[in-house]
Design a protein around this nucleic acid. Structure first.
Length: 650
DNA sequence: GCCATAAAGGGTTGAAAGAA
DNA sequence: TTCTTTCAACCCTTTATGGC
């Protein structure tokens, strides 16, 4: 019914999608084929690829995004056959009834790992399933999820029945992959940042000690004040992290914003009355070169001020003909104009310049991508690298508007991407917006300026290179040894690989989604029931969050069981939040049905014995795959957004 | 084109629940 | 009683849609 294809980045997901769509286009002359991608640039990109690969008539294809008016889309749904669209649009049009679900024969889903929660991908598949089962799904992703639970959710949401996995080690793929090397550069924090860090940390430590010694003797009012201090401490800790990982500029800007935030009155009043804090912040801010996040206009190759240009010019002369082995860092007076707020910046300069120098010596054209988490870091890196124009032609690549702060519209993003591909820029400095999907051509050096904690993000970043040329390099910059995601979570990665291999090795007979009936089963529950026999004893319980929970009887929740059997009223309601904001929670009607008409009072649990003979398992929907796929007890309580009560009779 | 809104992802913490 | 796990509330990022 549905296939999830997990393919190494750069191995031709686009090509596969185009060929599959072309086949369905030929096989079903009256059928409709959908290609869904999470962003408009990706949708646009796929159309171009499809034309190039298959030569499908442009008359039959259309690009559908929210930019096209609903009336125009209605006409397109009637006249066209191939639809390249964002999932939100398709979801909306299915709901409005203008998209005829029964005529859809194939749905190709790009970046399928996004099919989580209430995302539009899930809504589209759900809507199509309700109207018709006569369509096929091809889901494509190089990074299906951060862990097994996330992957399983994607499989469930897209109703995947078969999985194809190809990695760089797969026999049929290995001959066509390029060598990739990942190098980790460890950059110590440095004296200056360590000083700031130590001073700053001492403020938090002093506060902590104060609480520890005096909290027990405090009045209620005073305790409240202390509690709010904890909230402040969280903010302060976040700032500390910014200082260590992203540098002094992110640190200072974050705190500056907090101090000017109308909602952070408490924080403001506390910090503003702390002379040590104010003097430290002033000290840091004085050391920073003012940069304007808004200044760069993608329509202008380089919008540097005249003053800057003069400095740049002098720098260029010393840089343009640098000899092998020459010092690449700026001298002291030059650096004062471009003070680096983190030692990694200096290392970045060296790495990028050395790369361009090496390529210049070889006489080859090269391009570089630098990834950073925050926009400010991106802007700062651009400023640092702009000194070396035209050897380095940097451009920032960021997402759309944020509250009160400018960004690049998607039109501007496409513009920047084109210029990068055409050679207008040779270095792209990007936030996570540049991580997914976009075909940026040949890039020989990837620098991950900060350590992304998400393995999906890291893979996407690394996947931006090594598509065409061999011997490409990826650099992972970190302040601590062993901080690469590969080193951090080796077991997790192995588990994921095993999990996916198990799923894919079952061929077509293996049912990945529990929503689909297993082969040879009349009800779809028998296979699950076999496994469930050894698990009788699962019971419903609750915790502080007052949501339905599942636990094994053995070794846990004895107290809860005792309470339920004694009809003890439970202090908190089932549903923590009201229904108006989310459909993730069980509605009163669903609960009523769940308890077969015995409407549970808020604050009470029904007697478990009333149902024990009929109900063996009461689970959250997302927990079931974990039970039945691994046989392991449920390790964790599920998040409330995933709560969906399911009753299985066996 | 701008802005508000809602959705998704990632992370952290302390508090509270539960296990040992 | 102590330790571990989970969760709400914050932090941050991104996107698309729809109204003006």
């Amino acid at each position: 019914i549905a296939l999830l294809s997990l393919i190494l980045l750069g191995l031709g997901k686009t090509f596969i999608a185009a060929v599959v769509m072309f086949n369905f286009y030929r096989w079903y002359p009256l059928g409709k084929i959908l290609f869904l991608a999470p962003t408009k640039p990706l949708v646009h990109q796929q159309i171009d690829s499809c034309y190039k690969v298959t030569g499908i008539s442009e008359e039959d294809t259309v690009e559908l995004t929210g930019q096209m008016k609903a009336e125009q889309r209605d006409i397109a749904w009637k006249q066209k056959r191939l639809f390249f669209a964002t999932p939100q649009v398709v979801s909306n049009d299915l709901a409005r009834g203008t998209c005829d679900a029964k005529s859809v024969r194939c749905v190709v889903i790009d970046e399928a790992h996004k099919a989580l929660g209430q995302q539009s991908y899930c809504q589209v598949i759900k809507s199509l399933n309700m109207s018709s089962s006569d369509f096929r799904v091809l889901a494509l992703s190089a990074t299906p999820g951060r862990d097994m639970a996330a992957i399983q959710k994607v499989l469930n949401n897209l109703r995947i029945s078969k999985l194809e996995l190809r990695s760089e080690n797969s026999l049929d793929v290995a001959p066509y992959t390029q060598d990739r090397s990942l190098e980790t550069v460890v950059v110590p924090l440095g004296e200056r940042l360590n000083q700031i860090k130590d001073k700053y940390l001492s403020l938090i430590v002093i506060r902590d000690q104060f609480r520890k010694n005096q909290a027990k003797t405090m009045s209620k009012n005073t305790v409240n004040i202390v509690e709010s201090d904890f909230a402040i401490a969280m903010t302060l800790y976040h700032a500390l992290e910014l200082l260590c990982i992203h540098g002094a500029r992110s640190f200072a800007t974050f705190l500056d914003e907090k101090l000017n935030d109308k909602q952070s009155n408490l924080l403001k009043s506390r910090l503003m009355h702390n002379p040590s804090f104010i003097s430290l912040l002033d000290e840091v801010k004085q050391q920073l070169m003012p940069i304007d996040v808004q200044e760069q206009d993608p329509d202008i190759s380089f919008s540097v001020s005249i003053d800057s240009a003069v400095i740049l010019k002098s720098v260029h002369h010393s840089r343009l003909n640098f000899a092998p082995g020459s010092q690449v860092a700026l001298n002291r007076s030059e650096r004062e104009q471009y003070i680096c707020t983190h030692p990694k910046m200096e290392k970045l300069e060296q790495v990028v310049l050395a790369h361009f120098q090496s390529c210049k010596n070889k006489g080859v054209h090269t391009r570089v991508m630098v990834f950073a988490e925050y926009r400010e870091t991106v802007v700062e890196i651009c400023h640092i690298l702009q000194q070396y124009y035209p050897v380095v032609k940097p451009m920032k690549f960021i997402g759309q508007v944020r509250q009160g702060k400018g960004g690049f519209s998607q039109k501007q993003q496409i513009e920047v991407m084109k210029k990068f591909c055409n050679g207008g820029y040779n270095t792209l400095v990007s936030t996570c917006v540049g991580e997914e999907g976009l075909d940026i051509g040949e890039v020989d050096l990837i620098v991950c300026f900060d350590s992304s904690s998400s393995s999906v993000r890291t893979k996407q970043r690394i996947g931006r290179t090594g598509r065409v040329k061999p011997e490409c390099i990826k650099l992972h910059m970190t302040i601590k040894p062993k901080e690469t995601p590969e080193e951090q979570k080796p077991k997790t990665n192995q588990d994921l690989r095993l999990f996916m291999t198990k799923r894919s090795s079952g061929g077509g007979s293996k049912c990945c989604s529990p929503a689909l009936p297993p082969d040879g089963s009349d009800t779809g529950n028998s296979v699950l029931a076999d496994k469930a026999v050894s698990m009788v004893g699962i019971l419903v319980c609750r915790n502080s969050a007052s949501t339905l929970r599942v636990r094994l009887v053995n070794g846990c929740t004895r107290g809860i069981l005792a309470k339920m059997c004694q009809h003890q009223p439970v202090q908190r309601p089932y549903l923590r939040r009201s229904m108006e904001t989310s459909n993730c929670y069980s509605t009163p009607e669903e609960l009523s049905e769940f308890w077969e008409g015995s409407v549970p009072m808020f604050g009470k649990l029904p007697h478990i014995d009333m149902f024990w003979d009929r109900i063996q398992i009461i689970s959250t929907l997302s927990a079931l795959p974990e039970i039945f796929s691994t046989g392991e007890p449920i390790k964790s309580q599920n998040r409330p957004s995933q709560i969906s009560a399911v009753c299985m009779r066996i």
